[in-house]
Amino acid sequence: MTANGEHGDPTPLCELLAGQRIAKGWSQCDLVAKLHNRSGNDSVTREEISRWERGKRIPGPYWRQRLSDVLGTPNRELELAAAVARRQRRKIID
């Protein structure tokens, strides 16, 4: 899954992360372990991954870079997907 969905519509970060994790056959716990190993930072939890994937939160630049490294996804693609997610959140609020 890329930052563009099936119909060329931009994909929000929550869908992109979940799709890429599932495509790799990883559980949320697997992704947490890989992020811990890559970053040396154990502050992210499975619950936080769940929030990201449900669109309840958007990971900040630090974690987006680590996600890029772990998932093998260009950081630019994650940044675009985060921007899409932020726009969607604003529409819900307005």
Rank of each mutant, 00 (worst) to 15 (best):
G5P: 03
E6S: 11
D9I: 10
P10S: 06
T11I: 02
T11K: 11
T11Y: 07
L13P: 07
E15K: 08
L16D: 07
L17Q: 12
L17K: 08
G19E: 08
Q20V: 06
R21G: 07
I22Q: 14
A23Y: 05
K24W: 04
K24L: 15
K24D: 05
W26M: 12
W26F: 15
S27N: 10
C29D: 08
D30R: 10
L31F: 03
V32E: 13
A33D: 09
L35C: 09
L35K: 00
S39N: 08
G40I: 05
G40F: 12
S43T: 11
V44M: 14
T45Q: 07
I49G: 11
S50A: 14
S50Q: 06
W52A: 01
K56W: 06
R57I: 06
P59N: 13
W63Q: 01
R64N: 14
R64H: 12
Q65E: 12
R66W: 03
L67H: 04
D69E: 10
D69Q: 11
V70F: 05
L71Q: 09
L71C: 07
T73Y: 11
T73K: 14
P74Q: 00
P74K: 07
P74C: 12
N75C: 14
R76F: 15
R76K: 08
E77L: 10
E79W: 00
E79H: 05
E79P: 01
E79R: 08
L80H: 02
V84I: 13
V84E: 09
V84T: 09
R86A: 14
R90P: 00
R90T: 04
D94A: 15
D94N: 13
D94T: 04
